[in-house]
Every structure is written in structure tokens, then in C-alpha cells.
Design a protein around this nucleic acid. Structure first.
Length: 391
DNA sequence: AACCCGGCCAACCGCGAGCAG
DNA sequence: TCTGCTCGCGGTTGGCCGGGT
């Protein structure tokens, strides 16, 4: 059984408001206020309108200091930034933009901003694909022509000033929120994790907008508080923490921050808070499906490393991982790496001076966990401190 | 001039949360 | 604790308008 209607639908007028209706409503509210009861209001002033309709008309159109249209660049930035952080919570976004209504922002987003972003994203992706082909050919040529095969495997370091062209030309503030900052490997793990989190945020945004990535259907691993690994299949990277299989404490944190008011600087979004929480616990709780290293956690999905490498300005990429110093080929190149670097690989994994990388697919094939493989490698390569749970 | 199509936006609808009795 | 009511929110609809054919 459905809910009782809020008003007598047969006797209420629908459709556009006339100037006379507007004047009546405005005059009454300016003089008496809403009286705390929108449903009763239309009867009081002799309007044949539903109370909800009156409320909407007042809030979205008649209320003083309402701005319509003409969104500034700065407002674009704020909308983008907040949408990335909290999604389609228009009322919260509107609260950060004086004079704007949630309805206005929602319409603006759906009709213009979204298309603006998606159009640029697709364009950039096409251009990136073109570049990839060139780079692949370059790699093949180097491998064939260069006597020093080592140089064909270890690629040049990217410039620390290089910003990827993959990202849409977002306004400055949104770009600051989502675009990668290309920096070399840093001992500041917090910084590096934030960069990758930002990239994931942008990815989620573009998926929300209807974009797809080649790895959208891959699975996602999370190791929970109890140390049990969870494999989650999903098409899009969810904002919902329950889908991410977070621990109860993490879910609680998420709920708290998700319902809290955002400060005007919006520096603390639910996802950011969640990521910060991960940052304090990642050594013990989380391992992701793509790669882990000896000191840091990267919440990536299968294949995402390629995007990140390109976004970070690498001249080429591999399917497995990236770090700030060098990048390594994927599974099909493991044997070559082994031979060239004289380092043994374990279950498709290998080590650099800075970190351990593990290929989860191969680890799985050999029947060991990512953690086990990582621990094994750290031991083998003489790491002074073992960084994984159970070590 | 007529028609079609897509963009835009005001308004509607249904649902969940919160509150009072 | 339950019920009924209002409010507020986000998704959707439908009409208007301008540009293209």
C-alpha cells in the first residue's frame, strides 16, 4: 500500500507558476515566514498549490539572493572537487556555494559540467592510445637494436615537473583535487599515497560519468582486520564502504565523516578521511589486488597501474606496477628481468632497492598469498625489517 | 516555413529521515 | 514502540526554445 498523498492532487494546480502566484507566496513568506509548515501554507494564502511545490518554488526561485546561471570558473572548481569527494549530494555542494540551489547545481552538472569533463576525458584517452602504440613500437625497437639489453628494460625516469596530459583540463582547484602530481619515489609515503588516492578519485568520477576503463570488471582484494583476504567483484569502484568490505571500525569512520558537515575548504571528504584511516593502518590490514610494496599501500585494481604510470609521466608502462625510481615489466617479462638483474623472482615477484612487488595472479597460481610472497622476498633480499602482517 | 532534434531547466515524484503524539 | 505526518533530498520528467535541415 502506497503512502498517502501529501495533498489533494485533484485540487492542486501543477505546472509553471504565474507571476501572481509568485507574488502571493513571496509576500506572505517575507511577512510571516513559512510558519514551519509548508503543507498548511498554501491554504493560508489561498494558493491552489501543493505545499511541497510552494517550498520548492521559494527555495529555488523566490528566496532572496538567489543566483541563476552564469556559473563562474571558481564555482565549477568547487562543484567538481566536491562531486569527486562526496558524489551527488547536491544539498551539501549547494551549501558551499552561496546563492546557489541544489537543483540549479544538479541541472548544471547534468547538462554541462559532466559532458565537459567526459568529452575531454575521451579525447585524452584516444590520444593516449595513439601514444601507446608509438611507445610499444619504440620499446620493441630498443629491444631489437640495443646491445645493452638492460637499457631496454629499465626505462628513463620521468621528469619531476611533468604533468600527464591524460587528465582533463579541470579548473585549478578541481585539478588540484584529482590530478596526479608527478614526483619521483618519495620516502614520504603519505604524500605518495595521496597522489594515488587522488588518481583513484578521478577514476571513480569518470566511471560515475559513464566512462569505462579496460579493467572495470576486475576483482578487488581487501584484507580485513582479521587478516582474511576478501575478493570483491565490481564494475565500478564503489563509494559505498560496505561494498568495499571495510571493517566495522572503518565503516563507522566512513559513516561519521559522510554525515558530517563539510567545512568550507572541503579539505576533509569522507573518502579522504577513509584513506587517512587506511594510512594509519595499512601496514596491518590492507593489501590490494595489484601491488604492495614494503612500506606503502596502493589501492589499485587490476590494470590500473598502467594508467597511473602514464599519468605520472612515465615514458612507457607495464601491466604490473610502478614506483618512483623505475618501473618493471609484467608477468611476461619476469624471466627477462630475472636474467638481466641477476635477481631471483618469487612467484612472479621481484624486489627493488626500495620495495617489494608481488604479482598476485602468479602468487595465486603458486598457492601462496601475496603477503607470504612479499615476506619471503623481503627475507631473501635481506630487508632489515619485515613489513607485512605475520612477519 | 515547417519539422525535427537536442539542450536546458523548472517542477514533479517518491523515498527516507526525523519528530511528535 | 508504533504510527502518522512533514521535511528535505536526489532522480526524473516534460515543456520550452533555439539551431539545423
Amino acid at each position: 500500500m502506497g503512502r498517502a498523498p501529501c495533498c489533494d492532487k485533484a485540487n492542486v494546480k501543477k505546472g509553471p507558476w504565474s507571476p501572481e502566484e509568485d507574488a502571493k507566496l513571496k509576500a506572505y513568506i517575507e511577512q510571516h515566514g513559512t510558519g514551519g509548515n509548508w503543507i498548511a501554507l498554501p491554504q493560508k494564502i489561498g494558493l491552489k498549490r501543493c505545499g511541497k511545490s510552494c517550498r520548492l518554488r521559494w527555495l529555488n526561485y523566490l528566496r532572496p539572493n538567489i543566483k541563476h546561471g552564469g556559473f563562474s570558473e571558481e564555482e565549477d572548481k568547487i562543484i567538481c572537487s566536491l562531486y569527486i569527494s562526496i558524489g551527488s549530494r547536491w544539498s551539501i555542494i549547494a551549501a558551499q556555494l552561496p546563492g546557489r540551489t541544489d537543483n540549479d547545481i544538479k541541472n548544471y552538472w547534468n547538462t554541462r559540467l559532466k559532458k565537459k569533463l567526459l568529452g575531454k576525458q575521451r579525447k585524452e584517452q584516444q590520444s593516449r592510445r595513439g601514444n601507446n602504440n608509438t611507445l610499444k613500437q619504440e620499446m620493441i625497437n630498443r629491444g631489437n637494436n640495443n646491445g645493452d639489453s638492460n637499457s631496454s628494460l629499465i626505462f628513463p625516469h620521468h621528469s619531476s615537473n611533468q604533468i600527464s596530459s591524460y587528465w582533463p583540463e579541470l579548473p585549478a582547484m578541481a585539478a588540484a583535487a584529482v590530478a596526479p602530481i608527478a614526483i619521483p619515489y618519495s620516502d614520504d609515503h603519505e604524500e605518495q599515497r595521496n597522489i594515488i588516492d587522488s588518481q583513484a578519485s578521478m577514476r571513480r568520477l569518470l566511471i560515475k560519468l559513464g566512462g569505462r576503463f579496460s579493467d572495470d570488471d576486475h576483482q578487488h582484494h581487501v584484507v580485513n582486520d582479521d587478516g582474511m583476504s576478501t575478493i570483491i567483484h565490481h564494475q565500478t569502484f564503489p563509494n559505498d564502504p560496505s561494498i568495499l568490505s571495510l571493517s566495522p571500525s572503518q565503516q563507522q569512520l566512513y559513516e561519521q565523516t559522510a554525515t558530517a558537515h563539510l567545512p568550507s575548504s572541503s579539505s576533509s571528504s569522507p573518502m579522504e578521511a577513509l584513506n587517512n584511516n587506511m594510512g594509519t593502518t595499512h601496514d596491518h590490514q590492507f593489501v590490494n589486488s595489484q601491488y604492495i610494496d614494503g612500506a606503502n599501500l596502493h589501492m589499485l585494481r587490476a590494470g590500473q597501474g598502467i594508467d597511473i604510470q602514464q599519468e605520472m609521466g612515465y615514458s612507457s608502462s607495464n601491466p604490473q606496477r610502478v614506483d618512483g625510481m623505475e618501473f618493471l615489466y609484467g608477468e611476461e617479462m619476469v624471466n627477462s628481468i630475472r636474467a638481466l638483474s641477476s635477481c631471483e623472482t618469487i612467484n612472479g615477484s621481484w624486489a627493488t632497492d626500495h620495495s617489494i612487488q608481488v604479482c598476485p595472479t602468479v602468487a595465486s597460481e603458486y598457492g601462496v598469498s601475496i603477503q607470504q610472497a612479499g615476506i619471503h622476498q623481503q627475507q631473501e633480499y635481506g630487508f632489515s625489517e619485515l613489513r607485512y602482517p605475520g612477519a
